[in-house]
Simulated assay, not measured.
Amino acid sequence: MSFLVTLTVNRACYRVVLEDERMTLLDLLREHLELTGTKKGCDRGQCGACTVLVNQRRVNSCLALAISVDGADVLTIEGLSQGEEIHPVQAAFIEHDGFQCGFCTPGQIMSTLGLIQEGRTGEDPERIREAMSGNLCRCGAYAGITDAVLDSLGRMREKTTQNGEAA
């Protein structure tokens, strides 16, 4: 039996026929939509390398069944930049050396964006580290990641203010 899933990924609408209802969102993104920026780390929801935003909430895509996101809005690392202009969170990670090998970086960046949208940490480094604890970095770039998240908060606030929206 096959299942039709319709979803929006990075502002583009997709209709995908699933032959296996057990397919994860991660496998749908990587194997069917060829969006390989989302990484398969542990494949058990423990490392956060596969973090994407589903309806603006952080999700470990290796744990979410593709069929469960029918009708959802999914944002992956590939959907952040606008042409040649990188997203403010990406710029902050570059500026603060928030990565070393780079494998975890897409998940770290997507988790940072989700954390900012959730608005629960403020600018408290300890709360940020706790909120980002589901994203592991084997290289140990945590100091740079925390600095990048703090900088991202300011950049996103500034971007919102420049766009005339409420800060």
Rank of each mutant, 00 (worst) to 15 (best):
S2H: 01
V5I: 12
L7D: 05
V9T: 05
V9F: 10
R11L: 06
R11E: 09
R15N: 12
R15C: 08
V17E: 11
E21V: 00
L25Q: 02
L25P: 09
L28Q: 03
R30Q: 08
T36Y: 05
T38A: 07
K39Y: 05
K39Q: 05
K40Y: 07
D43C: 14
T51C: 02
T51G: 03
N55M: 09
R57K: 13
R57A: 06
R57L: 03
S61P: 10
L63V: 01
A64F: 01
A64W: 04
A64N: 04
G71F: 10
A72V: 14
A72P: 13
I77M: 08
I77G: 01
E78R: 03
L80G: 07
Q82A: 13
Q82H: 14
E84C: 10
P88D: 02
V89T: 14
A91M: 03
A92C: 09
I94H: 13
H96W: 12
D97S: 13
G98W: 02
C101K: 04
F103M: 13
C104Q: 04
P106C: 12
G107Y: 14
G107T: 12
T112P: 07
L113R: 05
G114Y: 00
G114T: 01
I116K: 12
R120V: 12
T121E: 05
E126G: 12
C139S: 10
G140E: 01
A141Q: 02
Y142F: 06
G144M: 08
T146P: 04
A148N: 08
D151R: 10
D151N: 11
N163F: 11
A166Q: 08
